[in-house]
Amino acid sequence: MQSRLSRGLVFVVLCLIGVTTVYPLLFMALNSMRSTQAFELNPFGLPTHLSLSSYSALFSTVPFFQSILHSLFVVVPAVILATFASSLAAFVFTKVPIKMGNVLFWTMLMIMFMPGIVVLLPLYVEVARTGLSNNFAPAILIYTAINIPYGTYLLRSNFRSIPDSVVEAARVDGASWYKIYLRVILPIGKPGIITVGILTFLNIWNDLFISLVLLHAPNTEMVTPTLAQLSGKYTSNIPVLMAGLLLGALPTLILYFATARVFIRGMLSGAVR
């Protein structure tokens, strides 16, 4: 496709797709700053004057700020734990010769394809029975566990691209397995590990199912269930809803914008499959 015309055409189509991915963000941002009446007159209008009333309405009707904190409180430890456990497991599966390594790995992969509800159903009952519902600890651990197989799978293909001979050189240099993990695998695999960490963050932050089931009391509710409730309460008040959506998306958007270079490179390196 060499001609100027056809390249121009490609550019235009790309712009159109780009508009569909950016416009919803703008839609949220712009309408969250308008009044309900203005929105109803024209959903495409621009804010005439900066009105933050939607935001104050949001904070006064649902404990929105707390729900963000709850989400962070669950997601951050789960991401760290899951990424750490996955990287260790992936290291063993790729570089340490052990018996049954492959069997263990394939078992993990099978589990990965289980629908979440198969796993969650008895866990929910057990958590309720032991009086731990609306408690962060089980939610953190369950999120961690559910993200380990995928993380291990991704990091395994990532660590495979580290030559075995580099690990062997380290062994000959006198490094223990633990030192090899710490000083060879972690630094070389860093981009991949960061990518997997971001993916895990997105997975957990954006999940509705587990948080809805395990943390439903107002004093533990995470941000996605809060947003889902909000849409029920505020279908008539779009600007407040948009304020909520934007704030709920902000942490992941910031994470993405801040790490886009490493993240996109990691995703493109073929690590995702």
Binding site: E168, A169, R171, V172, P187, I188
Partner: peptide, 19 residues
């Protein structure tokens, strides 16, 4: 272990630590 044997080895592809 390799460490206890106190060996040094040069690999065909050199196996340098890239980082």
């Amino acid at each position: 272990t390799s460490k206890e044997r106190d060996v040094a080895m040069v690999f065909q592809n050199y196996a340098l630590y890239p980082h």
